[in-house]
């Protein structure tokens, strides 16, 4: 662990940090798009990677072109871009996640890690509400909810931001893998009934990538 991550108190999250997140997110989504589409083939319609790539390239362009001057503004901007470009269920769901989180952060120019955790929690609640889904339904929530839990838990225990976000990324990865034995109860995979069992949910997989990119942005910031 780096020095910065071992001293949690006093760390702040600013606009540059969130920009780093979404630039990293766009890169990892681009890199992993084919894998996401592959995951979407047996239980979906083989387009999750292409849709996410289109959305995150648009989001990165927007963030690089006219970066808002608050962290909340960055989240809202990216959320809007995703709603306008991704389509499918993923667009409104990821859009809602980030817009709700952004609104929760308000106009502050800098926020504490705990505030980010709380904002993400509100975003995840928004996703659950919009999609009418719960954990265990084999959706993106199965990666996002454990990630937020792990983030909050680690911060409570005094972990630094990078360390807490690494814990969140691990929880998201584990959550995504845990969707493999689940039977889908929401979205297109639910049409398959029991035949959805044995495949990883592509939305949970992309969610884990995004949490991973967030953890990466924190590590970069500590160098």
């Amino acid at each position: 662990m780096s020095e910065a991550s071992s001293t949690g108190a006093g760390q702040v999250i600013d606009t540059a940090f969130l920009r780093r997140w979404f630039i990293a997110a766009a890169s990892v989504i681009e890199r992993e798009a084919d894998r996401l589409t592959e995951l979407d083939s047996p239980i979906g319609d083989a387009d999750h990677g292409a849709n996410m790539r289109r959305g995150f390239i648009a989001a990165r362009t927007a963030v690089e072109k006219e970066p808002p001057d608050t962290p909340g503004g960055v989240l809202v901007l990216v959320g809007r871009q995703l709603i306008s470009t991704v389509g499918g269920a993923s667009g409104p769901l990821y859009g809602t996640l980030l817009r709700k989180a952004g609104k929760a952060l308000g106009d502050a120019r800098q926020v504490a890690p705990e505030q980010l955790a709380q904002a993400l929690r509100e975003g995840v609640d928004g996703v659950a509400q919009l999609g009418g889904a719960a954990q265990g339904d084999k959706t993106m929530l199965d990666a996002l909810a454990p990630a937020v839990e792990a983030l909050t838990f680690a911060l409570d225990k005094g972990a630094g931001l990078a360390e807490a976000l690494s814990a969140a990324a691990i929880a998201a990865d584990e959550g995504a893998l845990a969707t493999v034995p689940m039977q889908a109860r929401k979205g297109r995979a639910s049409y398959l009934g029991e035949r959805s069992i044995g495949h990883q949910d592509p939305g949970a997989a992309s969610s884990a990538l995004l949490v991973g990119a967030l953890a990466g942005a924190a590590r970069e910031g500590t160098v």
């Binding site: 319609d45 083989a46 292409a50 849709n51 709603i83 389509g87 499918g88």
Partner: peptide, 11 residues
């Protein structure tokens, strides 16, 4: 019309 097999966006 949306992308192939993907719903259109609200805009």
């Amino acid at each position: 019309p949306g992308e192939v097999f993907t719903s259109p966006v609200p805009d």
